[in-house]
Design a protein around this nucleic acid. Structure first.
Length: 677
DNA sequence: CAGTGAGCGAGCTTCCGCTTGACTT
């Protein structure tokens, strides 16, 4: 009997179908060894020796592996084909002892062909790759467990910093500043409304004055990229009015009609990042919720593994998807050759396939019936995107009509139309862009607009981040991994570094204080290039070109020096928010401060005057028990809930505002129904 | 499902990445 060890139970179940009776398949459930939780666990004076120990809740798993190993004559380590997978394989080997025979096999997709091929080509454990993981782990531990205590001392207890979370926070704080500093500029556009062939308002936009284009593209350099926005050279109401005055006799003459075919290609199938982005955008789910739904779909065998950075699909899937497309939609919808996508992320490890349905014939309705509607909705996104990715391009005929008005100045207008002439992949994954068909215009045709108007606009600052855009930015910077994207947001939220305003992230005063402290003192770590440089170094270690210890030493020496310097610096002051309320003790103004439990009101004269009172965020609802105000509260863990303002006299509480109006029986039914759906 | 809080104070907090299960949202 041969023992095969993989990471996940589902993967174990799947490959047990490919391998014969001679194989016993077990799983490690991820990492089984790690640095201790309650101390640094890295001997910084002795070669950064890491004190790996058994992960507390993996003892049972390890016992099972040991038991299985006893009855096996060789062990095949089939964990994921990346840095972390290699380390897990190595830890398992250390755990099961040197007397056994070991082989290491790797495969990038869980298909019979790939697994068979892998088993034909076993190798030994790649110690260089394991070293790269050790370096990554040690570096993250040093950063996290040295910076966090510094924050406890300099800012407030319980706070945290890390290579990943601190950059995420920085993105949000920098964006807030960009928004605050953004200078809005007013501008105007001029539109002529033309009626023709029953189409009332064909919009002709002014695009040129005396041969000069009126659109101006502006570029704002952001911390994580660029933000492009448009305005026009018509900057004042007077300028706009002058143009309207000049255009008083309204006729325009068509000078050109341009037609062209535009091809649109489908997007690649989902990765974890893009799935979470669309989960947020199209279904309003946060990263955690998307992943939990996907987990179930994966466990039930409906989709491939959901933590991946690859857009590649297996040959088998390619074949069956193309068959499906031809059979269901016909030859026109099937491109001559399969479409191959490659990842744009330099740091992708591509240990798995893209996220796709395991069986293209599985329809949404079956999933909805079996697991519930929410699962069905997420499955549908995955199915549409995967099938569309192998379908033909959509073809649009786009029409541009140019019309001129020669007055004191020469004005040029433009109308755009587009008609879908072949839907292609849009048949399964519609984009929501409807047709905008223009009637036929001829050169020299004279148009008589019903009206010509000016419209006021303002340039807009870049938007705040939400779940989707933050994950996108982090992934582009190579920061975080598919298995951690969702928890990054959860971490900085639970530290109260950020709050949500209509789903978008706003830094709190604490978040700003922590960020500014880190940027002022540790900007070499707390920035986007740091992780990219780290990954380069880890590659060198994995290639065997460099040793891991000197790399860590190079990083740690200056870091340690800086830690020493900052140790003696003054405590960081957290900003207060002004209010109009007056302190009943001394008549000074009250301010909003933030403590361990969130916001509270205190006298601005603290410490001379120690008056405090709770900060309450009201809702417009009344308590169904005693008619008191319903106010927003937080649990010890920071979760939001709604309670009665007469607490503790009245103990009414609810998780959701919608649950409050009805009586308790209805409430119970509602919550049950929600769990099902 | 909660009534405190901040420059003091015992003992404690904390990282990133790999997994699922126990929680109910």
């Amino acid at each position: 009997m041969k023992l095969v060890i993989v990471e996940s139970p589902t993967k174990a179940r799947t490959i047990s179908r490919f391998l014969g009776k001679d194989y016993l398949i077990k799983f490690s459930m991820g990492h089984i060894m790690d640095l201790p939780k309650s101390k640094l666990g890295v001997d910084v004076d002795n070669g950064f020796n890491p004190q790996y120990e058994v992960v507390e809740d993996k003892k049972k798993t390890i016992a099972e592996l040991k038991k299985a190993a006893k009855t096996s004559d060789s062990i095949i380590l089939a964990t994921d084909p990346d840095r972390e997978g290699e380390a897990i394989a190595s830890h398992v080997k250390d755990m099961l002892g040197k007397t056994q025979k070991y082989q290491r096999v790797v495969f990038h997709e869980i298909t019979k062909e790939a697994v068979d091929e892998a088993f034909k080509n076993p190798r030994v454990i790649d110690t260089n790759l394991v070293d790269a993981q050790t370096a990554r782990r040690v570096l993250d531990r040093l950063v996290g467990y040295k910076l966090s205590p510094l924050l406890w001392k300099k800012v407030r207890r319980g706070l945290s910093a890390g290579r990943v979370q601190s950059v995420a926070l920085r993105l949000i704080v920098e964006r807030e500043r960009e928004i605050e500093n953004f200078k809005k500029e007013p501008y105007f556009t001029i539109t002529a409304f033309v009626k023709k062939e029953n189409i009332d308002n064909i919009l002709f936009e002014l695009i040129e004055v005396d041969g000069e284009k009126i659109d101006v593209q502006r570029t704002l350099k952001l911390y994580d990229g660029e933000y492009k926005y448009k305005k026009t050279i018509i900057g004042t109401e007077q300028d706009a009015q002058n143009i309207l005055d000049d255009l008083k006799s309204k006729s325009l003459v068509v000078s050109d009609v341009l037609e062209k075919e535009v091809h649109r290609s489908p997007q690649p199938p989902y990765t974890t990042s893009t799935l979470q982005q669309d989960g947020a955008r199209r279904l309003g789910l946060n990263g955690r919720r998307t992943m939990s739904l996907a987990q179930k779909l994966y466990e039930e065998g409906f989709i491939t593994y959901h933590r991946t950075d690859s857009v590649v699909i297996s040959n088998a899937a390619l074949f069956s998807t193309r068959n499906y497309i031809e059979k269901e939609f016909g030859k026109r919808y099937l491109p001559e050759k399969p479409k191959f996508y490659s990842t744009k992320q330099k740091l992708a490890q591509e240990a798995h396939e893209a996220i796709r349905p395991t069986k293209v014939s599985n329809q949404t309705s079956a999933i909805s019936n079996q697991l519930g509607e929410q699962y069905g909705k997420l499955y549908e996104l995955i199915w549409r995107r995967a099938v569309a990715s192998q379908m033909a391009d959509a073809i649009t005929e786009s029409t541009t009509v140019i019309a001129d008005a020669k007055r004191e100045r020469n004005f040029r207008f433009k109308a755009n139309g587009s008609v879908l002439i072949f839907d292609g992949f849009l048949k399964v994954n519609p984009s929501g862009l409807g047709d905008n068909k223009l009637p036929e215009f001829k050169k020299e045709e004279v148009l008589h607009p019903a009206k010509i108007e000016k419209t006021f606009h303002e340039t807009l600052p870049p938007p705040r981040y939400n779940d989707a855009s933050l994950i996108k930015s982090l992934e582009e910077a190579g920061i975080g991994r598919p298995s951690t994207y969702a928890s990054i947001v959860a971490t900085i939220e639970s530290r109260a570094y950020i709050e949500r305003d209509q789903g978008r992230f706003v830094p709190t005063v604490v978040g700003v204080a922590v960020n500014d402290f880190l940027v002022a003192n540790f900007s070499t770590i707390d920035d986007i290039p740091f992780t990219a440089e780290m990954e380069d170094e880890l590659d060198n270690i994995a290639n065997g070109e460099k040793e891991w210890e000197p790399m860590i030493k190079n990083f740690y020496s200056p870091f340690e020096k800086k830690l020493g310097e900052v140790e003696g610096a003054a405590r960081v002051k957290i900003a207060v928010e002004e209010t109009d309320e007056i302190c009943p003790n001394c008549g000074s103004k009250l301010v909003i401060r933030t403590g361990r439990f969130g916001k509270f009101l205190s006298c601005s004269k603290f410490p001379e005057c120690k008056f405090t009172k709770p900060f309450v965020e009201k809702t417009n609802l009344k308590c169904p028990k005693d008619g008191g105000d319903v106010i927003v509260k937080k649990t010890r863990k920071g979760r939001k809930f709604f309670g009665c303002s007469n607490y503790p006299k009245c103990d009414f509480a609810a998780w959701k505002l919608e649950d409050i109006s009805g009586n308790s029986k209805i409430k119970n039914q509602n919550s049950k129904a929600q769990i099902k759906s």
